[in-house]
Simulated scan of single mutants.
Amino acid sequence: MTLDLRVFVEPQQGASYDDQLAVARAAEDLGFSAFFRSDHYLAMGGDGLPGPTDSWTTLAGLARETTTIRLGTLVTSATFRHPGVLAIQVAQVDQMSGGRVELGLGAGWFAREHEAYGIPFPAKRFGILEEQLAVVTGLWATPADETYSFAGEHYTLTDSPALPHPVQERIPVIVGGGGPTRTPALAARFATEYNQAFPELATIAPRIAVVNEALADAGRDPSTLTHSAALVVAVGSDEAQFRRRAEAIGRQPDELREHGVAGTVGEAVDRLAQVAADGVTRVYLQVLDLHDLDHLELIAREVAPRV
């Protein structure tokens, strides 16, 4: 079993840029492969102080203050940016990082944050997401001596120079969601990775089978798509430390054990082995206490070598 372990944070719950920088540098030093963050502008419970940070502004800063760790969003909301602007932002951060960026893109779901900041929130968003994926990947794939045009229901681009070009030949694109048909088909068309966000554990393997079937229907080799899952993490060197970490993030120990990578080191290893057996090769560990860097150190020292 070899799992790619990544650190995933939710800064809208209350984290400054410096808080995120500290976690990203610790994750890099400890050997995690990536630092990812959510793309939200409003806390989901609590006051969210000191207030939200923009995902791509944050990642641009981290691109210059880290050296090896990969950086990305899980996931950027298609309602937040025009796809032409998003393509420029992500390609620029890719340049700033030397080719370490990945883009998770979703339709958006949190209506309240749109209301709070005056962002339009259409009732039907899947078509917007589909066109954004087409535009962003189309712009990046346009050769230097050509232009890119697109005519859709939601977006029209005419003779775009499709600049700037990313450093990477292909920026990895992550798609997720629970829809039975349209989302797997979207992943088959555009994604390099399909992510299951906080799934019920029993649904992981069946969902992978559905997505692989969509890949086959599209004439695509299933081995070309990475399967990942995002799971909350709370690990202790013993039961007492685990319970202290559960309390610090406002979660019940039994609930964490049921849904996440949680408990003692041995329990965390067993949970990761379980999701690997179901077909997941990459896990985003949702770290909710950004000030507990000893937590990351414990996972890197005691858990990661066993998975």
Score class of each variant (00 low, 15 high):
Thr73Tyr: 11
Leu49Gln: 15
Ala268Cys: 13
Gly48Leu: 12
Ala216Phe: 06
His295Phe: 02
Arg243Cys: 12
Ile88Cys: 09
Asp217Phe: 06
Trp140Tyr: 03
Ala218Asp: 01
Glu10Gly: 03
Arg282Glu: 14
Gly127Glu: 01
Ala22Thr: 03
Val307Asp: 02
Arg207Leu: 02
Asp145Ser: 14
Ala63His: 05
Gly72Tyr: 00
Ser223Leu: 02
Gly106Tyr: 09
Leu21Glu: 01
Glu169Arg: 13
Thr73Leu: 09
His165Ile: 10
Thr57Trp: 06
Phe35His: 02
Arg81Gln: 03
Thr226Gly: 00
Pro222Cys: 03
Arg301Pro: 05
Ser160Trp: 03
Thr68Trp: 07
Ser16Tyr: 04
Thr224Asp: 03
Ala187Gln: 07
Ala22Ser: 12
Leu163Thr: 14
Val211Ala: 00
Asp289Lys: 00
Glu131Gly: 07
Pro83Phe: 09
Arg257Lys: 15
Gly108Arg: 01
Ser149Leu: 14
Gly99Tyr: 05
Arg306Leu: 15
Ser228Met: 03
Leu103Val: 04
Asp39Trp: 01
Pro50Gly: 05
Glu131Tyr: 11
Pro161Val: 09
Val85Lys: 07
Gly51Gln: 04
Ala27Asp: 08
Asp294His: 13
Leu288Met: 15
Gly106Leu: 08
Leu3Met: 13
Asp159His: 15
Tyr194Gln: 04
Leu293Gln: 03
Gly51Glu: 11
Leu129Val: 13
Gly118His: 08
Phe126Lys: 00
Ala162Gln: 04
Pro143Tyr: 13
Pro122Ser: 07
Ala116Tyr: 08
His82Arg: 13
Val135Trp: 08
Leu21Ala: 04
Tyr17Ile: 12
Arg112His: 10
Thr183Arg: 01
Val93Pro: 00
Glu130Asn: 12
Val9Thr: 14
Glu193His: 08
Val235Phe: 12
His114Leu: 13
Ser97Gly: 08
Glu169Asp: 14
Gly260Ala: 12
Val75Asn: 06
Leu42Phe: 08
Ala230Pro: 00
Ala22Met: 08
Met44Tyr: 13
His295Asn: 03
Trp140Lys: 01
Phe36Glu: 05
Pro305Lys: 15
Ala230Lys: 14
Arg64Cys: 08
Leu139Phe: 07
Leu201Ile: 14
Pro161Trp: 07
Trp140Val: 01
Gly263Cys: 10
Gly219Val: 07
Arg25Phe: 02
Ala191Asp: 06
Leu157Ala: 10
Ala43Phe: 07
Ala248Pro: 00
Asp254Val: 12
Arg282Tyr: 12
Gln12Ser: 09
Gln132Gly: 05
Asp292Val: 03
Thr158Ser: 11
Gln286Cys: 07
Asp217Ile: 06
Pro122Asn: 05
Gly177Phe: 09
Ala34Gln: 03
Ala24Arg: 04
Ile128Lys: 00
Asp19Lys: 00
Ser55Met: 09
His259Phe: 15
Val265Asn: 11
Arg220Gly: 00
Ala26Phe: 05
Ile299Asp: 04
Ala197Tyr: 12
Pro180Gly: 05
Val303Ala: 01
Ala273Ser: 14
Gln89Glu: 15
Thr76Gln: 11
Thr57Gly: 07
Phe198Ser: 11
Gln95Leu: 15
Asp29His: 13
Ala123Asn: 07
Val232Ile: 12
His114Asn: 08
Asp159Val: 10
Ala262Trp: 03
Ile171Phe: 04
Ile119His: 07
Val307Arg: 02
Pro161Gln: 10
Leu201Gly: 11
Glu258Ala: 14
Ser149Pro: 13
Asp29Gln: 15
Ala246Asn: 10
Leu5Asp: 03
Asp47Asn: 09
Gly179Ala: 12
